[in-house]
Amino acid sequence: MNQRRARVATAILAAAAFVAILPSTASAQCGSASWYALTSKTASGERMNPAAMTAAHRSLPFGSKIIVTNQRNGKSVVVRINDRGPFIKGRVIDLSKAAAAKLGFIRAGHTPICMAAAG
């Protein structure tokens, strides 16, 4: 349990260190994330691929690379913004199914996260 807390604390500190790097359009660096696995076209015009490391964000530019860290277990993944959303109050990002699997929250459906710009 102490290792888990240490990983989460490290992830939060790392996210805080990158806050200044995020574009000003990213109003929230931490919040709730969910996942989706559609195969329709995304807002960027490409086909949604549930196996790709992609995400939907309301305002970040398409192509932005973001590090998303699951606050519950400390796991992180880099995703590329290629869609708009989420459209659920309180959620800050929608991740592809593959990204959610790497973060370990497929069964839960949503999880608290922090995000930072990938260098």
Rank of each mutant, 00 (worst) to 15 (best):
T39H: 14
A43S: 14
H57L: 05
A56C: 03
A52V: 08
F62I: 09
A55P: 11
M48D: 13
T54M: 01
S59F: 01
Y36S: 06
H57K: 09
R58C: 11
W35P: 09
A52S: 11
N49G: 01
A51W: 04
F62R: 04
V68W: 10
G63I: 03
V68Q: 08
V68E: 11
A52N: 05
W35I: 11
G45E: 01
S44V: 09
V68R: 10
G63Q: 05
K41P: 01
H57P: 14
P61V: 04
M53K: 08
Y36T: 07
T54I: 12
M53Q: 14
T39C: 02
S59G: 01
R47L: 14
M48T: 03
K65F: 05
S44I: 13
N49D: 15
A52Q: 08
R58S: 12
R47M: 14
A56P: 12
F62E: 01
R58P: 01
M48F: 15
M53C: 03
M53I: 02
A37G: 10
M53P: 04
S40A: 10
R58L: 12
V68H: 07
N49I: 05
S59W: 01
A56L: 05
T39E: 13
M48I: 06
V68C: 03
V68G: 11
L60G: 07
R47V: 15
A55D: 12
T39G: 14
T39V: 09
S59P: 00
R58D: 02
A51M: 04
N49K: 06
T42E: 06
L60S: 09
A55T: 11
Y36F: 14
K65S: 02
G63D: 09
I67S: 03
G45H: 03
K65Q: 13
T54W: 03
W35D: 13
T42P: 01
G45F: 01
W35T: 13
K65E: 07
A51C: 03
A43I: 13
A56S: 08
A55S: 14
R47P: 00
P61E: 03
I66E: 10
E46C: 00
R47N: 12
L60A: 04
A37L: 04
P50R: 09
I66A: 12
A52L: 07
G63Y: 05
E46L: 00
S40G: 14
A51N: 14
R47D: 04
A56G: 11
W35V: 14
E46R: 10
H57D: 15
K65L: 05
A51S: 13
H57C: 07
H57M: 07
K41T: 09
A51Y: 08
I67N: 08
I66H: 09
E46Y: 06
K65D: 00
A56F: 07
A37I: 00
T42H: 02
A51Q: 12
A55V: 09
